[in-house]
Design a protein around this nucleic acid. Structure first.
Lengths: 108, 108
DNA sequence: CCCTTAGTACGACGGTCAACGTACCACAAA
DNA sequence: TTTGTGGTACGTTGACCGTCGTACTAAGGG
């Protein structure tokens, strides 16, 4: 009976500060990059294998609350999808420029 | 005989995490926006009048160390200039998309 | 029914952040 | 020389962050 929240702001309420803060972490940026590379939704657990489950949960919450990621339950896993259209509509070009950034430019 | 540092990373060492973190603060984003609006260099004191001098110094240091701003001394004031070409060269489109963001999309 | 798998909740720890006040410095103008 | 003016240094405060471990839940598969 726990919350297990999936709440993410809708398109016109996505906050730039939250987005930039979410993307300022290399780990999260890595997740977003992977999520963008394969448009197929994947379970959370298949990302960032170097960190703990709980840390991963934390990062996904930050991404979701910033409006970068959408999540839903599917069987036993929780799936994630990049909200590309919404972010692109709200901040055109932002995601592209961040994802196109040279590796090692803050990638831990 | 105090340091009074002006050090800013050179173009190819600008770190994306630092840039995004610097821009994730509304106050600093406001400074950058003003700096971008008037290409004329201005003394630090003429920005963000609502905050304290020391806080302003702090924000300018974050911006400078992220590589977003260049500073130099001119008489009694310290001038600031947006390093637009450098940032644009390193992360094309990033600054544009952030500056084009709707007001109120995280603006405090 | 147990057991595994996938993820969350909670608490903790060390680190950082933004903001402030006070004290200080450097320079210029009076 | 004295008095601004513009900015830094330092210390502090309360909040938050990234990370972890442990304990828990929810859903399937045997």
């Amino acid at each position: 009976m726990l919350p297990m929240s999936f709440e993410s702001p809708d398109r016109d309420r996505i906050d730039l500060s939250l987005v930039l803060h979410a993307l300022s972490d290399p780990q999260r940026r890595g997740i977003v990059a992977e999520l963008a590379r394969s448009e197929e939704p994947r379970p959370c657990g298949s990302f960032a294998p170097n960190i703990t489950k709980s840390t991963r949960t934390h990062h996904f919450r930050v991404l979701r609350e910033a409006g970068l990621v959408e999540q839903w339950k599917e069987g036993t896993s929780k799936m994630s999808r990049l909200r590309r259209e919404d972010v692109d509509a709200r901040f055109p070009g932002l995601l592209d420029s961040v994802l196109a950034a040279p590796i090692g430019a803050g990638r831990l």
